[in-house]
Design a protein around this nucleic acid. Structure first.
Lengths: 252, 252
DNA sequence: CGATAAATTGAACTCTATCAATAGGTGTGG
DNA sequence: CCACACCTATTGATAGAGTTCAATTTATCG
């Protein structure tokens, strides 16, 4: 079984052996980071690229009034930042939620990776998917009530974790608190609690002790209007065919 | 005065003359598109790259229940999609809001542009800023009430339009309806109307006939917690040197 | 086992949606 | 030039969603 990054990138298309070997090399050194610790803070200049190998991290921002908004879940295979080369200061922070295994990749290694055409396209694809997820989250926040936002979030996490082999058809580990879910969907923890109860009463899910059981994925998707198109998981060949030296954009 | 794209890209850093000449060439051919027409629909395969030269367009998604969420305003200098090379199908649509002047750039031209190091970096910067805007919009939706969301949106649009010379210090054209503002901040048009009245009663803004007057930009920014860091308007090197105080950066 | 964090519950209150009706504005055809 | 249709903006009233405060119960962990 491959590591989560290789596994994720190959959703887009098969990678040549040397590319996979490079990935293995690059993630060789990793460290364990305890839950709820900061990987990089807003305002800091990113130096290296972080990659989540295990556990769940998040991107977030803290407001003056103390409120925190989480706007991305980083699951195994997700990069913290490929953009070290361009932006000088982080406009948001990255923290672990659970205990995580994190690889820190030097920028030289990133350049090395982006010089391989297949890998470069796969990495670019991954950043485009990240962007698509941000868009979908805005839709989620703007158009659905809290219960459906929560249901949609669960559907997305299930799809993403399932894609890298970290979710069965009907359950997965989700080591976050109700408060963190609240900070994600933009509501209060009290209300998240009531939404969870309502979803459980409908026999759709059960969330307890950092473990989510999805009892009826079809209905959960249906009520939340979840459509996985935006995750672009079907690395259909027409995606890859139409590629013309995508790596050019990384040669900067 | 340069075209809006050159103007925007040079916010990141000065471009060599040949790069600017290339941009001029590339946007030479443009067409007028009437308001409220679709440029690309969800599901379609993008063929060329659209660039807004005049007017305002948006990215949006329509839900089954008929609701529409707008999650990006495209102002002059903004690209519709640099990602034609990777993704097979659009996961959202792009429509004009007002009448627009649109340049359609063939993919070959984009490749040509990304083969110039300065231009490639600037274009990459622009896509990173677009992503940062999406993140900030999620914060906006999740953490602020409708009135403050609206105020924040106005602050952002002012900053972005001002950066490309399309806003004075205290006003700019904003040819959108209250309903469209509602679809942007995820509320009802009735409520937008009341928020506008409240903001006007506070003598912060005045919005009428597609024209926004900002009477008190400082206070508008203050109440909405607007901090322009995420727009990364101060380009490459200067960004490194003009580091704000820790407090400014940590709290939005 | 105690200390601490997380989850749960109830109640009062605020924000926002929805419905419905009215007013204002713009462009078209007669 | 007016009359009309159509879209946008505005207003009031009511209902529903979600917040906040506070108290209690249930985990979790050293």
């Amino acid at each position: 079984m491959y590591n989560p990054l290789t596994r994720k990138l190959e959703l887009f298309g098969p990678l040549p052996e040397p590319d996979k070997k490079l990935i293995d090399e690059v993630i060789e050194h990793s460290r364990s980071v305890s839950g709820r610790s900061s990987l990089i803070r807003e305002g800091e200049a990113p130096r290296n690229v972080y990659l989540v190998l295990d556990g769940i991290a998040c991107r977030s921002k803290v407001l003056r009034n103390g409120g925190r908004q989480i706007f991305a879940f980083l699951i195994p295979g997700d990069f913290c930042d490929l953009n070290v080369f361009i932006l000088r200061a982080m406009d948001h922070g990255i923290e672990t939620l659970s205990e995580c295994q994190i690889a820190e990749i030097p920028r030289d290694r990133i350049l090395e990776m982006t010089q391989r055409p297949h890998l470069a396209r796969a990495l670019w694809w991954a950043t485009l998917v990240d962007e698509a997820i941000l868009r979908e989250w805005i839709v989620n926040m703007g158009q659905r009530d809290a219960e459906h936002r929560l249901a949609h979030l669960f559907c997305e996490l299930h799809a993403r974790l399932h894609a890298v082999g970290l979710a069965s058809d009907h359950d997965f580990e989700l080591p976050v608190t109700q408060s963190e879910l609240a900070e994600t969907i933009g509501t209060s923890s009290v209300h998240v609690n009531r939404c969870l109860q309502s979803l459980r009463a409908k026999e759709l899910i059960e969330f307890k002790a950092g473990h989510l059981v999805i009892q009826n994925i079809d209905q959960l998707r249906s009520i939340s209007g979840f459509n996985s198109n935006y995750l672009h998981l079907t690395g259909g060949k027409s995606d890859r065919e139409s590629v013309a030296s995508a790596d050019d954009r990384f040669h900067v």
